[in-house]
Design a protein around this nucleic acid. Structure first.
Length: 559
RNA sequence: GCGCCCAUAGCUCAACAGGAUAGAGCAACACCCUUCUAAGGUGAAGGUUGGGGGUUCGAGUCCCUCUGGGCGCACCA
């Protein structure tokens, strides 16, 4: 639609005292029920032109004569432009950018660099769908940045130090083999036991002490647990096509004494002080942090580091990597904490990461809690979705196809989480998440497959099609939607919000499905029209394929 | 108690930097497969955008306030 905005802005600029930019920024797409292709509200020009909005619109409407316009009319101060359908069709379709190389070229983002850290969940158990939201949002953003030509560097911070790991080490100390799938139950049990048995707590802290002071035997035991966990967790994400470039271990900051330099830097600030217990504490009053006592305890009394200090060091390392952008996808529970780390970084003269926060996934009967075991595990969701997809495919196609079932099932899973705006809570219920009708990724995959089926049967070259022949109502509606693809991708990029894309894919699919029901493509006499329609649907297929890809969803050739 | 986020149809979600008559899907109702894949399409129904004030030519969108939900509130990581 951008090209039409330019066209209209130029036209109005030539027929009024308004300049191109002020016209262009005010242009909008009118609601479908109002009619018209582009609208210009004239209210804001009233003051400068010393004229009533209606009079301005009237004046401009009457002075514009353009062969490509069907009409320009004033509706209560809105100037509505309606183009001739053939002009609209070829202008939008011939200029629509749908492919990765075209879009990255057009927007000049090639070879920019971005570091993205995401997920970084505790290595203690199988991830639940709440934390999966982190990985899904981030992975989609990674895909969008890559699509636009950015070079991405994706990091995972492994919190391999701490009480929760020590507890798992304690609970598994006599076990020869540790199975990743047993860890959740072990974790729940040991937390239960620790409540009634204080000796566990003591033993756990002893483990932690030994780990931090470099006891090789204990370090090996920690590594055994952490590696089992990371392996198990990343295998699940890997199955979903989500990958990282590097895993950064928190313990490195302890064992290699990497926190000292940053601590020395912070000591230069009067905001860092030693409290009565001998711990280093950062006073963050005046940093606009929304808590009563903005203090960050950085060390224990023996001056060994606490997590926030290690996190500041890690964040500094990421900032020092010198990428054009530095992004972090983080749960809303970490909002204040992130502000605290950011304030410390500014104190050190560094630029904190940009952050995308997401809200939690809620269950119909309450919140999820790993410790209480009231969770929906990502892997359970994956299995259920695949099973349901396979059942449906078997029913339709006569036999099972597990690869296809995964593409359908995982797609539905991702879509159900990604379609919600990150700042809103997602309410998870099985029926909704496993619904393959209507507003779901399956609708898009299904219609993509329909298009492939037609294109295969067509057996004709539609490269130099005359798009001006596509003037039916459902064709124009579909063309308008396809032509938005690039601006939607850019909108996801600007807002760091993949739900915009999920939404778009549904609208595009809907428009295609309506066109498909209303018009024949192969069964028509007019060969030129057939060519034009084939060209149109091939472009729709490209937009669907690339759009789904950017959400991390695979297409299927038949369904 | 304080701070940040959210509240839109019975349910789940849309509505680009404030724009015109607030849109979809699910569920429920009535239709449409001798025609390119019916996981589809069409129609009807469903709303005082949580309540109340304000700013504006214009408010779901901005401001204030109340209610309800989510998250957090140094010495866990």
């Amino acid at each position: 639609m951008e090209i039409l905005f330019d066209y209209v802005a130029k036209l109005v600029a030539n027929n009024s005292q308004l300049n191109f930019d002020e016209i262009h920024t005010n242009l909008e797409i009118p609601n479908a029920n109002i009619g018209g292709d582009v609208a210009l509200p004239c209210f804001k020009f009233a003051k400068a032109l010393r004229l009533a909005p209606v009079a301005i619109a009237e004046q401009i409407a009457s002075s514009i004569k353009d062969e490509n316009l069907e009409k320009v009319e004033n509706v209560n101060g809105f100037l509505n432009f309606t183009f001739k359908p053939d002009f609209l069709a070829y202008t939008l379709l011939d200029n629509a950018l749908l492919e990765q190389n075209e879009i990255s070229e057009h927007n000049g983002m090639k070879n920019k660099t971005i570091l993205i850290e995401h997920t970084s969940i505790n290595p203690n158990a199988s991830p639940h769908i709440g934390r999966a939201r982190n990985a899904l949002i981030a992975d989609s953003l990674v895909r969008v940045f890559k699509f636009l030509g950015w070079k991405t560097d994706i990091h995972y911070f492994v919190n391999d130090v701490g009480k929760q790991i020590a507890m798992l080490v304690y609970a598994t100390k006599d076990k020869k083999d540790i199975n990743f799938n047993d860890l959740l139950q072990i974790y729940i049990d040991v937390n239960e036991q620790a409540k009634i048995n204080p000796e566990i707590e003591n033993a756990v802290f002893e483990y932690l002490n030994k780990f931090e002071s470099g006891d090789e035997q204990v370090i090996a035991e920690f590594e055994r647990i952490v590696n089992t966990c990371i392996k198990g967790q990343t295998a699940i994400f890997d199955e979903l096509g989500i990958k990282w470039d590097s895993f950064d271990y928190e313990s490195r900051y302890i064992h290699q004494h990497l926190t000292e330099k940053v601590l020395d830097e912070l000591k230069k600030s009067p905001k860092l002080f030693e409290d009565k217990d001998g711990r280093y504490v950062l006073d963050q009053h005046g940093e606009n942090i929304g808590i009563e006592e903005p203090m960050l305890v950085l060390t224990r009394n023996d001056k060994t580091s606490l997590y926030p200090l290690r996190d500041i060091c890690y964040s500094m390392d990421k900032a020092k990597a010198g990428t054009d952008r530095n992004l972090l996808v983080l749960g809303e529970d970490q909002k204040v904490y992130f502000q605290q780390i950011s304030a410390a970084m500014r104190l050190l003269g560094a630029e904190p990461a940009e952050v995308v926060h997401y809200s939690f996934v809620l269950l119909p009967d309450g919140k999820m809690s790993t410790r209480r075991g009231t969770v929906v595990l990502l892997e359970d969701f994956m299995r259920e979705a695949t099973a349901k997809a396979d059942e449906a495919i078997s029913e339709r196609r006569g036999d099972s196809d597990i690869e296809k079932a995964k593409k359908v099932g995982y797609g539905a899973l991702k879509y159900s989480i990604l379609k919600c705006s990150p700042e809103k809570n997602v309410l998870f219920d099985w029926a909704n998440a496993l619904n393959f009708n209507g507003d779901s990724s399956v609708f898009a995959q299904y219609n993509y497959a329909r298009i492939q089926s037609i294109l295969q049967k067509a057996d004709m070259d539609y490269n130099n099609a005359k798009h001006s022949l596509l003037t039916r109502e459902t064709e124009i509606a579909l063309i308008k939607e396809v032509s938005r693809f690039e601006s939607v991708v850019l909108s996801v990029y600007r807002n760091l919000n993949p739900s915009i894309l999920a939404n778009y894919i549904f609208n595009l699919t809907s428009k295609f499905s309506q066109f498909y029901a209303a018009e024949s493509i192969l069964n028509i006499e007019d060969a030129e029209l057939k060519k034009a329609r084939l060209s149109l649907i091939s472009k729709v297929a490209t937009a669907l394929k690339n759009g789904l890809y950017l959400l991390g969803i695979d297409i299927v050739e038949s369904l």
